[in-house]
């Protein structure tokens, strides 16, 4: 059987043919580093680091010269205050106490919210009547900006962890619920019918057909929930708390302490990237069967 129709991209041109013959020695080595297909990732990584370094250097150069350092801080100020705030002897409590408070709240809210969202997504997608009845209510609750619920949760659950966890939960719940629901509703009818004809029981079809079909959607929901879930934790702390990164943001804001604010933004950035990488890795393992997109890692919405 000819495989001609499977070749999806034209093979790369033989670059050696384009190389002028007089290029030798170090220049040849350099040329190879610049052009070799297998070094593409190294080149991209190197350029990324370079880009980051340029930004930092520019920032440092501008700060205190063109723009007041109290407005934009500077990388060196940031490093300095990082060690100050992170110090365990800090009377406000070390940065890490606040950091882990927020991480813990986000984590529990995320776990409970995601579990509930996925479970509800499955159940509602399978039971037509319930889905039809409940849909407008879900949309109504989901449509309200989440911050509007925060004062209510504080009134109900106090000013400790609970309202923050619950705020994160509601956000993560809806996002994972909607994507799970859509994923399961989107499973091909034909695929299910064929599986029935091939002798699949309801349970077997759920396990072998429905769950794998819906899993790219579920992963997508899990991924987009991370930054939004963190919003819940931060907003909850921002409104009222005596701990957490949101609390620090609120305090530093009152004190016009921009270095502290920027520091926390960087911490949050680091956190989101870390969790995203972990999920990407898990997704890559679970969905190894999918045709990889060009960059290999970004989420492809199926459909």
């Amino acid at each position: 059987m000819a495989k001609t129709d499977e070749v999806k991209s034209t093979p790369p041109e033989d670059l050696d043919l384009l190389l002028p013959p007089e290029v030798t020695g170090m220049r040849l080595l350099w040329w190879r580093v610049r052009n070799a297909e297998e070094l593409r990732w190294v080149r991209v990584a190197a350029l990324r680091v370079l880009f980051g370094v340029i930004m930092i250097v520019l920032w440092e150069a501008v700060s205190g010269r063109l723009i007041d350092h109290r407005t934009i801080s500077s990388p060196s100020l940031l490093v300095e205050s990082f060690f100050e705030i992170a110090d365990a002897a800090n009377p406000d409590g070390s940065l890490w106490v606040h950091f882990f408070y927020t991480v813990e709240n986000t984590f529990w809210g995320y776990v409970f919210g995601a579990l509930a969202g996925i479970l509800f997504g499955f159940v509602l997608a399978e039971i037509d009547v319930v889905a039809l009845v409940i849909e407008p209510f879900i949309m109504a609750f989901n449509g309200v900006p989440r911050i509007a619920y925060a004062p209510l949760f504080i009134a109900w659950f106090g000013i400790e962890r609970q309202p923050k966890i619950i705020l994160v939960m509601t956000i993560v719940f809806f996002l994972t619920f909607v994507s799970t629901f859509a994923g399961i509703r989107g499973v091909s009818r034909d695929l299910i019918n064929v599986s029935r004809v091939l002798g699949g029981s309801k349970i077997a079809i759920l396990r072998k057909i429905v769950i794998p079909s819906a899993s790219p959607w579920i992963f997508n929901g899990l991924k987009i929930s991370i930054p939004f879930g963190m919003v819940g934790a931060i907003v909850g702390e921002y409104i009222i708390a005596d701990k957490g990164l949101g609390y620090l943001l609120q305090r530093y804001n009152n004190e016009y302490y921009t270095t502290g604010l920027i520091l926390i933004i960087f911490l949050l950035m680091f956190l989101v990237i870390l969790v995203n990488q972990i999920l990407n890795w898990a997704e890559g393992r679970a969905l190894r069967w999918r045709p990889t997109s060009r960059m290999g890692q970004e989420t492809v919405i199926p459909g």
Partner: peptide
């Protein structure tokens, strides 16, 4: 179970 069905779309499981 004695009757098999081959559909127009191949309906293979991509995973």
């Amino acid at each position: 179970p004695e009757i098999g069905y081959v559909t127009q779309q191949d309906n293979l499981l991509p995973w």
